[in-house]
Write a protein that binds this DNA or RNA. Structure first.
Lengths: 114, 114
DNA sequence: AGACTGTTTAGCAGATTAGCTAAATTGCTA
DNA sequence: TAGCAATTTAGCTAATCTGCTAAACAGTCT
């Protein structure tokens, strides 16, 4: 089984096109919730909830800046979860660069275990 | 926009843990629907539906063998869709091997500014 | 304090999803 | 043809998801 801890939340988060687009938008750097919402046709509260899902999945981090809340991409987390899965299903086609998580050799050094 | 055509179906298909596990199981080679179903606690019809979702997403292919239907992993499709997304969000962390799909113009800089 | 901006939380409606059982389909074999 | 095994399709229910509007919360500024 390749599902480490809560990778499930990550894949569920990636299931929605709006959320995937948010992640892509965040590729350019931090963005405030309002800025992100402004890029979509849906309401701000809806975007806020998407951000909540992404944050719960660990795919983004938030930081308060005065009035606003800035969101940033958690690239490592995304690459780790998805990469771990890909390396379990089609390891020939993909290669991960930053492997701070160790694909198969052994578990994690941190107490990721129960 | 990195979403090519119906990548959406792929990510939705990956959102379910059972379906991800099916893909991993298929890594070992072709399996009949019954063999796959036997690995899960859920009913055969439920597994059949999962297989349908995976097939519609293009992640697996099916082939009839007498009484049974054998399913096989469509690795290229999986690597292409997911890889395309990863290379759009965190290109530094991953490297794709089989690039038969075209990552996009290398000079990609978010110009969606207002 | 009061007003204003930015963002999230609450509560609701409509759509989708996953699981189940029963029944239909497909192919093999006696 | 009847019978059996392997799978899928149909139909139903319960849970989850997404979007919306209204309201609440947080922070800034005069």
């Amino acid at each position: 089984m390749t599902e480490s801890h809560d990778d499930s939340g990550v894949f569920k988060a990636l299931a929605d096109p709006t959320r995937r687009q948010i992640l892509e938008d965040l590729r350019g750097g931090e963005l405030a919730a309002g800025q992100i919402a402004g890029r979509f046709a849906i309401s701000a509260p809806s975007v806020s909830r998407h951000l909540g899902v992404l944050r719960t999945a660990g795919l983004i981090t938030e930081r308060r800046d005065g009035n606003r809340i800035l969101y940033a991409l958690a690239e490592d987390r995304l690459a780790a979860c998805v990469g771990r899965f890909l390396s379990a299903v089609c390891p020939e086609q993909i290669v991960l660069r930053h492997t701070k998580w160790r694909p198969d050799t052994r578990a994690d050094e941190k107490g990721t275990e129960a």
